[in-house]
Simulated assay, not measured.
Amino acid sequence: MQYEVTSLNTKRLLAGSLRKFMREKSFSKITVSEICLDCGVNRKTFYYHFEDIYALLKWILDQEALKIFLDCGLHGDFKDTILFLLDYIDTNRQFLNSIYDSLGYDGLREFLYEDFIRLLSSIITNLEKQEGCLLEQNLRQFLCQFYAGALSGILKDFLKARHPGSHKDIQERISFTLETSLLSLIREKGKKVS
Rank of each mutant, 00 (worst) to 15 (best):
E4F: 06
Y3P: 01
Q2E: 10
Y88E: 11
L8H: 07
E128F: 14
L66D: 06
K25H: 02
Y88F: 15
F95L: 05
V5F: 07
L57A: 13
L112H: 03
Y105A: 15
F84H: 06
G153N: 14
A150S: 05
E179S: 11
K156F: 12
F69H: 01
Y100N: 10
Y3E: 12
F78N: 00
R162N: 14
L85N: 00
L66I: 12
N9M: 11
T6E: 12
L86M: 09
K156M: 12
L86T: 10
K168A: 03
T10L: 09
S166F: 02
R118N: 12
L85F: 14
S122A: 14
V41N: 11
L85R: 02
Q171P: 00
D80S: 13
G73K: 03
G16D: 15
F50V: 01
C39M: 04
Q145M: 08
L143E: 04
D157F: 07
L56V: 02
L8N: 11
G104D: 07
E114Y: 00
G40P: 02
L108W: 14
N126D: 08
L112K: 05
N97A: 06
E114K: 10
F78Y: 15
R19K: 15
E51F: 01
F27P: 00
S26H: 09
D115W: 04
F158G: 03
K67W: 09
Q137F: 08
R140Q: 10
A161F: 04
Q141N: 11
S122Q: 10
F95I: 01
G104I: 10
S17V: 05
N126E: 09
C36V: 04
G104H: 13
R12Y: 11
G149L: 06
R109F: 13
A15V: 02
S7N: 04
L112Y: 06
S122V: 01
I170P: 06
L37N: 12
M1W: 07
D62F: 01
G73P: 10
F21D: 04
E34L: 02
M1F: 11
G165Y: 08
S184Q: 10
K156N: 11
K129E: 14
L18N: 11
F69Q: 06
I99T: 11
L159W: 05
F78A: 00
K192I: 12
Y100S: 05
H163K: 14
K44H: 04
L182Y: 09
E131R: 13
I53A: 04
H163D: 03
Q130H: 06
F176Q: 07
